[in-house]
Each structure stands twice: as structure tokens, then as C-alpha cells.
Amino acid sequence: MITVTQGGIYYCKGGRGNPVFFTEDSDPITIEKRVSNKAVVSLEPSWPLIFSGEKITVRCQISLGGSTEWEYEWSKPDSSTGLANNASINLNASVINSGSYRCMGKNKQELYSVTEWSDAITLTVSGQRPKSSISADSRVLPEGDTVTLTCSVTPSTPGWSYYWYRGKKTSEPLTMAEVVLHSDGQIGVSQEGDYWCRGGRGNPVYYTDYSDVISIKKTGESW
């Protein structure tokens, strides 16, 4: 038995007699030296629920890495592991990407010097496309006043911006010059017409389905 302080590939063999008769070499065993640098895995964006088709980056960061060049080993939901020079995995998310991700770093300059595995982070991907819905505080537009429209996304998740349309769904989104912005997800409109909305987030933008139409009429007009 021996004690080793360096990482590397080790093997042994036995010998006896004079002259020495040697056994065959043992199978090799790899000893890795654990370094103090910590691996941390993160999601960008870090939304708790991702929808199929969104662009997601899984990133591995090594603390106090300095000028050290690292190679990265990943543990992914499909149970595969593998080395990569890149510190990130770019995904066009699908349901099969759901699961836990971990990473570790391997020092390129010092063979067999590695970090511990990072804590796992969980990616949850839904195959259901999110839906937008629109509502109004009134279907009748008072003279000289506005009607407040509200757009919301189901299931409720963070990160959404809202896009508003009047007339046809093929039209360009309304600009801030055409509406009064009350809050994120709420606008005031002063023109009658048919209105739609939808949510979008990320870069490139991932859109929800369009909402149903809601019709706003002026006071005194028949439906």
C-alpha cells in the first residue's frame, strides 16, 4: 500500500523471487486532485418555467478561475456526461431537456486537477404553448376618455412584455404614441376598434398565442 499526493494514472504489479518474476500490470486507476475552485451552474434566463422553443443557456462558472484554462464536464438529464471546451450549453428548449444539470471544471494546465461537481440546477420545460387573454374595464368608450385594457399570460410566469394590436392580427403592434401605458400589461385606448394582445420574452423573442379579440365601441353606438 502507498499514499499518493499527485493526480495521475496509477497501476501496480507484483513480483517475487530472484530473479524477480512479475505479474501482469493491474488495470489502471485514475486519481484526480480536487482543487478549491467551486463550479456553479446557472440558467440564462433563470425563469422557473421554460416553454418549448425558447432559447436557453446553461452556463458553468468556476470561482477564482483567474487565467486558468478550464475544460468542462457536464452531467445532463439524459444521464450522459462529456467534456467540452465551452462553459455553456445553448438549448432550443424542448421537453426532453427537462431535468437536472451539473458541471465540473478540469484544469488544462495541471492534468488531473479538477473541481468538485457543482450543485444541480433543474430546468423545467413545458410542451404547452402559453396563452394570452385580454380584458377591458368597459366595452364602451366614453367621450373624451379612455378604456383600460389588460393583457395577461397563462400559465403565469415572469419576464413577459406585452404587444398590442388593433384591427387585424397581421397589423404591426401599437406604438406608445397610440396608447396610454398604465403599467406592464395595461394600456389605455381612446379609439374604438377590435383589439388583441400577446406576450413575448427572451432574445430572440418567443411569443405566446394571440388573445381573443375584444371590441371597443364609442358611447351610443350599437353592437
Rank of each mutant, 00 (worst) to 15 (best):
P19E: 06
P204T: 01
R102I: 07
S79K: 13
G193R: 03
E116C: 10
S156H: 12
Q61H: 12
D184H: 13
S215L: 14
S161Q: 11
V41Q: 04
D27P: 11
S215E: 13
S133V: 08
S156V: 13
G17V: 02
L43F: 08
S26H: 07
C151K: 04
I214D: 01
N97L: 00
I2V: 11
K106A: 10
V4L: 08
L174M: 08
G199I: 01
Y162P: 05
F22N: 08
Y165I: 02
V179A: 00
G144C: 07
E73C: 08
S26C: 02
A136R: 11
S98A: 02
T175C: 05
G159A: 10
V40G: 00
Y72Q: 05
V20I: 14
N85K: 14
C12T: 07
S156C: 05
W74C: 01
V20R: 12
V189M: 06
S63W: 04
K38R: 14
S171N: 10
P204Y: 01
A177P: 10
L83T: 00
I2E: 13
G66W: 04
D78F: 00
V58C: 03
G193T: 06
E172I: 06
C12K: 01
V213C: 09
S222N: 15
N85A: 12
V180Y: 14
S67T: 11
K217E: 15
N97S: 01
F51C: 04
R129N: 15
T170Q: 12
W164A: 00
E116R: 15
G8F: 06
V213H: 09
G199F: 06
G167I: 03
V20S: 11
V189A: 02
I9K: 12
D25P: 03
Y101K: 05
G144M: 09
V180P: 03
T81K: 09
D119I: 03
N107F: 02
S133D: 09
S156W: 09
S190D: 11
Y10F: 07
V213K: 14
I134M: 08
Y206P: 00
S52L: 06
G17D: 04
G167V: 00
L181Q: 14
G193Y: 04
I187C: 04
G199P: 03
D194M: 15
T30Y: 05
D209S: 10
N85W: 10
G8Q: 05
Q61A: 13
C103G: 01
S190F: 15
G82L: 00
I96N: 09
V20P: 10
I96G: 02
I89Q: 10
I62Y: 02
G66C: 05
V95N: 06
T148H: 10
T5I: 12
E192H: 12
I31C: 11
I134Q: 00
G200C: 01
C12S: 04
I214A: 02
H182N: 15
E24V: 05
N90I: 05
S118H: 06
T115I: 03
